[in-house]
Structures are given as C-alpha cells and as structure tokens.
Amino acid sequence: MMTKNDWLDSVTSTMKIDPDQYSPITSTSRRSSFGYALAGWLYMLRRQKNTRIQAVASMVVVALSLWLQIDYGQLAVIVLAIAMVWMAEFLNAAVEAAVNLATADLHPMAKVGKDVAAAAVLLGVVASVIIGVLVLGPPLVARLGLGG
C-alpha cells in the first residue's frame, strides 16, 4: 500500500532531476533559443515538401477567410486549425529525427514512434479540414450563390 508521502515523493522526483548534469548542449539564452526555433522553421520549409505545400494551403485558406469576411472569432478558429497542422508536422519531423538519431537500424519501436507521430499529423489534418468546412463552407456557398 502506497502512503501519501510515497506518492508525493514519486510525483516530485522528476523535477529534482537537473538536466544540465546530462546535457551540456542545451541552450540557456532566450535569444539563441529563438534563433534555433527560426532555424528549425527554415529547415522544414527548405527540406520538407509537405511543409511547403502546407504553407501555400495555409495562405490560400487565410486569403479565402478574408475574402469571405468571416468575423474575428471565426478567423481565430481558422488560424488555430492551421496552426495545429503545422505543430503536428513540426513535432513529427522532430520525433523522426530523434528516432533516426537513436538507431540507424530498422527496429519495431522506431516504426511505432514514427508511425504514431505521423498519425498525429493525419489527425490534425482531418480535424482542420472538418473545421474549415464547418466555418468556411456556409459563407462560401452563400458567396458563390450556390444556395439558390
């Protein structure tokens, strides 16, 4: 039987770990962290074809939203939906790099890691498409006069 104290000890155990003890390369300056984030962004745009397609699609959707003059709240929803795909795509690429770094060999857990990260992207895309249709569909139909 676990006592209350044991539980508290185990919950607080992780925060007592000092990362500097293991990883001397972790950046501490905010400015350089920001620079690394931009570097990662440029890498994705340059090396990942999907990210470039995504960039174009994002701009098209934002332009469409502005053209349809949806309200600020709806625009916020669209922006969030687009961002969700970008985030998933970036984290997927990061996980993929981490897995490739861990082992150059084929390994079942490498497959699980990569496939599950890719599933997150798929999930983000499906949710975003549904949100896009829900928010932009009605005003688009009205604007095109398809409603009759």
Binding site: W41, Y43, F90, A94
Partner: peptide
C-alpha cells in the same frame, strides 16, 4: 540532433 531540437522548438515558437 540539431534538426530534431530546432524543429521541435519551431513548433513551440509557432
């Protein structure tokens, strides 16, 4: 390692 860390932090920035 650089790609993985930079791209993950790009997601946070985004």
């Amino acid at each position: 390692a650089k790609i993985g860390k930079d791209v993950a932090s790009a997601a946070a920035l985004l």
